[in-house]
């Protein structure tokens, strides 16, 4: 399986990432992708900018490890995870997860699995700037709850 993990301040090109996954998938046929986008509001407040901090080194390790867990569970051809850090504006792309597999259900499952574990295990932290000041974003219970699915489903 081919895998790519990138953590950087740079924006990413979804079309180019999809092309790269396609190039690794002559016998696959199914590419599932997720793109996380910055919202312009949160908890009722306008969000002007968002700053993403991370733990360099550990971030890449944890994401690679999550991809390996997904590849052990579903037969995958390739997986790409890109996560941005630094200052972002509303509608900016934050994260890309792309997976190619032989069967579309496997591709969908693996893609969502990677997103769910990235949300709860990869060391990123978001700080929002709103008209009334800056605040660190709190972790959400729903993200922890999303993990339960992967113990139950195959």
């Amino acid at each position: 399986m081919h895998s790519l993990v990138q953590v950087s301040a740079d924006d990413f090109d979804v079309g180019a990432e999809c092309d790269a996954l396609r190039a690794h998938s002559r016998r696959s046929g199914a590419i599932a992708q997720f793109v996380g986008v910055m919202r312009d509001s949160n908890q009722g407040d306008d969000v002007l900018t968002m700053e993403l901090e991370h733990y360099p080194g550990m971030t890449e390790r944890r994401i690679s490890e999550i991809i390996e867990r997904a590849a052990a569970r579903w037969p995958l051809f390739a997986a790409t995870v890109i996560h941005r850090v630094g200052v972002l504006l509303p509608q900016d792309q934050i994260v890309f997860v792309g997976v190619s597999a032989g069967h579309r259900h496997d591709a969908f499952q693996a893609c969502e699995f990677i997103m769910d574990f990235l949300k709860t295990e990869a060391p990123f932290w978001k700080k929002e700037r709103t008209p009334s000041g800056e605040r660190w974003v709190d972790a959400r219970d729903t993200d922890q709850q999303a993990l339960a699915r992967w113990q139950l489903e195959l």
């Binding site: 996380g36 993403l52 991370h54 550990m58 994260v95 990235l118 990869a122 932290w125 709190d138 972790a139």
Partner: peptide
């Protein structure tokens, strides 16, 4: 060693 609050990426 690193200490940090719950993560909020993605």
């Amino acid at each position: 060693v690193a200490f940090y609050p719950p993560v909020t990426g993605g």
